[in-house]
Amino acid sequence: MILDLARLFINFFMTGLFSIGGGLATLPFLYDMSDRTGWFTHEELSNMLAISESTPGAIGANMATYTGFHVASLPGAIVATAGLAMPGIIIILIIARVLAVYRNNPYVESAFHGLRPASVGLIAAAAVSVLQISLLHWERLGAGTWTELFHFKAILLAVILFILTRKFQKIHPVVFLAGSAVIGIIFSFAE
């Protein structure tokens, strides 16, 4: 038991330490972990990815919780999730301290002048990937007619949501999220 927990911690700590760029960046490491340890199969991994995309929280953290639970129940889930999060926490705390000292350094300020638009570019790229899975049938590319590429109900909902969210900015996003879930059910969005 203790040995399992130690192995879980070390494996997920290493994953957290080496995956740069968020949850999806942990995937190659998780595939590798699956091959080495046999804790979970590749198929379980892809199922988990689907579940993670539709449940709250970070994808990598969800994978750690799930794997840890299967290997060593609740203590395993805690140890694996903590192991994954820990490198990031430690490194960010160090960076924050360094940054506090150099905050007003002109070089640091210029660096941020370049970083911010890059940050927006990355968010826009994320929007594009969500666009592919929510408004388009990307998997049908090259098969059938071009109109089959579009998920028309979803596009209509997106336009309506865009107008509503901009018009009623005081309303909390979760209201729109919940509303969209209901609309998705009523109009059978998963085609």
């Binding site: 539709s54 969500v130 969005f189």
Partner: peptide
């Protein structure tokens, strides 16, 4: 179906 709707909103 619910999550297909939620994804549109996330977008």
């Amino acid at each position: 179906h619910a999550f297909a709707g939620v994804r549109v909103c996330v977008f």
